[in-house]
Design a protein around this nucleic acid. Structure first.
Lengths: 367, 367
DNA sequence: TATCGATGATTAAACGATTAATCATGCGAT
DNA sequence: ATCGCATGATTAATCGTTTAATCATCGATA
């Protein structure tokens, strides 16, 4: 749309100076006397002058727009990411253009191309599991996991896994089922790796992958967790709150009380985690910080870059590529039942005999 | 960043014609002979020509960018909306700039101003409950609810409420608790209105508002649903799947089986709805269609608008402002228990005596 | 044959900002 | 008195596209 506000020349005319001087005064680049500069800034502010991004972009080759590429917008983590990136970008003077790829790789490529065609100055990519980022011809910040080559900044998923595991371990759990979605995900593998490493040899850790299971049994199929409880598992450590929710409801539905008879933990502190019953114990990423670092690295790379060259856009790097995760202990995790090492038969019938201890760590609903 | 591709003049030079002719040929506006136009299109395609949005924007005053304003990006519905809008916009040749307002009204105003400063051609606003959209100086599509004045297009929330209610009614429910968040929300009120109207006088419908309750008792507080079951309520109709999830887990935790002893329904078919146990019965919006209509209306208004005038931007209107919702019946709703009209005392103890009927409508997990 | 009209293409002027190059001025030093 | 230099401001070109105005050409009509 057409600008409502005044143009550069209008301010110039108002003060009887040239447009160049106004531009210089506002950007602080050329040589302008202090008092004139001040006067210019004043009238610019008074008239509500906002520079035309189009004009500036045409001349400088900078659009002041970043692209945000996500593997799948439907990802429940998306709101957190988008919000954080938007905040960081806008405080740095950048706009954020979204590119959805609906989980499809070719769609993602197309989306990235559209961003390029729109002359974004840089982009933030949260890659789908295992996706290689092709050279896109502009600075790129990759948010994946610290262990992935080319990663710019990310949460310390491995460390998050360790925290979850140490928490469960301290509670007394020794037989835990880790629930993941897809073995090809770097993030999930790091989280699981962290969990395993913290449990070490003193515990039995098994992994259940949902996606392969669903390929066989259909989407939304039962995970068979009641049977796992019967086998002696006392904790279910899920790599996402989405899976934790699935596990929680499946257990509850089977009459298995959480956390008395089995603990459930998640990851990401998604929107529902604090409000379900029992509220989910989880590990949260510091998205605000991650986004700030990613955008900062991007902005720096953009600044150093010669706008004329459409060179290869290697992923940018940041000082602190690893942002620690924060353990959030709520009600879904507790000590395992005393009967935990009895034979399966006994455990399966334990329901009526076990007395529920009502523990309530970090309750958020006390007024 | 600087464009990698060739410019208009490069194509012109390649063919020995003027830049204007190339522009005319590509836009089909001026007078160009058919064969020359074809030749121009061919070489443009061959050289991979992509017009500079900046140059075009400067000349035409059109940036080909739409703004997307959401009350709160953290809203779990956001992914659906953003995805749908992005799809609709990009197929219409527009980019989507996001503006987050973190639930705050003044932040929202600032976000909108930033969009204006960036010269968006129009914007899609999903207003926070009761927010009045100030004149923003560009075409605006409002997605709220059909009964709100100024609304451009929206799901038929009232109708969705009716569908949910009719479903529950047909199952035999006569005492239902409607769970909402905030009485100030137009959307929620419409959904609830639909529910009430479909139940009519033959049933007892009570409303529970979460937000006021939480202000008293703290965030994530129990809703006291077990007591409601004891009072004879057999169904909990929530205005969002988020609340449905909360209700479901609270009931499960209290040992009340869903759907055998109480039915739970939601709204919006959020990401977790199909995978929790039991999967949630819900009413889904056709976001794709809503977004398509919103963007179409916006594009039309942009086309008719004189780029020179920065006139008042009244909300645009669309042909079909009302898009029907779709009832999705899953496992969380079933007929009420036979004991439903017995005194509370009996009902509270019914747990051990009631035999669970295992109904499985629309199961998504059969392979 | 001179003229009119239609057709097809070119010229040139924008759009709004940035910036290298230029110009004017005043002051101190030679 | 003049040169040089620093300072402060202006000129003019430029980014890439669109579009109104202009021009050239040719066939048909008066």
């Amino acid at each position: 749309m057409a600008r409502s506000g005044p143009k550069l020349t209008r301010i110039a005319r108002t003060l009887g100076v040239s447009a160049a001087t106004v531009s210089n005064a506002l950007s602080g680049k050329g040589r302008v006397s202090a008092e004139l500069a001040e006067k210019i800034r004043a009238t610019a502010a008074e008239l509500g002058y906002v520079p035309s991004l189009a004009g500036r972009a045409l001349r400088t080759g900078r659009t002041a727009v970043l692209g945000l590429v996500l593997p799948d917008i439907a990802n429940p983590l998306f709101p957190q990411i988008a919000q954080a990136i938007e905040l960081a970008a806008s405080s740095a003077g950048y706009g954020v253009l979204i590119a959805d790829s609906r989980g499809d790789v070719t769609t993602q490529t197309k989306a990235i191309e559209r961003l390029i065609d729109r002359d974004v100055d840089g982009m933030v990519i949260v890659p789908r599991r295992g996706t290689r980022i092709a050279d896109v011809g502009c600075p790129v910040a990759v948010i994946d996991t610290p262990s992935t080559p080319g990663n710019t900044v990310a949460a310390d998923h491995w460390g998050g896994g360790r925290q979850i595991a140490e928490h469960l371990r301290a509670l007394g759990h020794r037989r835990v089922l880790v629930i993941g979605n897809n073995p090809a995900s770097n993030v999930q593998n790091d989280r699981i790796g962290g969990i395993r490493s913290a449990f070490g040899d003193g515990a039995f850790v098994e992994i259940l992958w949902i996606e392969p299971l669903e390929r066989e049994q259909g989407k939304g199929c039962p995970l068979g967790l009641a049977a796992k409880v019967a086998e002696g598992f006392t904790a279910f450590a899920c790599v996402s709150d989405l899976h934790a929710l699935r596990a929680l409801t499946e257990l509850q539905r089977a009459g298995i009380n959480v956390p008395e008879r089995a603990s459930v933990t998640g990851f990401d502190d998604l929107i529902w985690s604090p409000v379900v019953t029992p509220a989910l114990t989880t590990a949260r990423m510091d998205m605000t910080r991650i986004a700030a670092i990613a955008v900062e690295a991007l902005v720096k790379a953009i600044g150093e870059r010669d706008p004329a060259d459409a060179g290869i856009g290697a992923p940018v790097t940041a000082e602190n590529a690893e942002v620690p995760m924060q353990l959030v202990v709520r009600q879904s995790s507790a000590a395992p039942p005393a009967t935990q090492f009895q034979p399966a038969q006994t455990i399966a019938n334990a329901r009526t005999t076990t007395t529920a201890k009502n523990i309530a760590p970090e309750g958020e609903h006390q007024p």
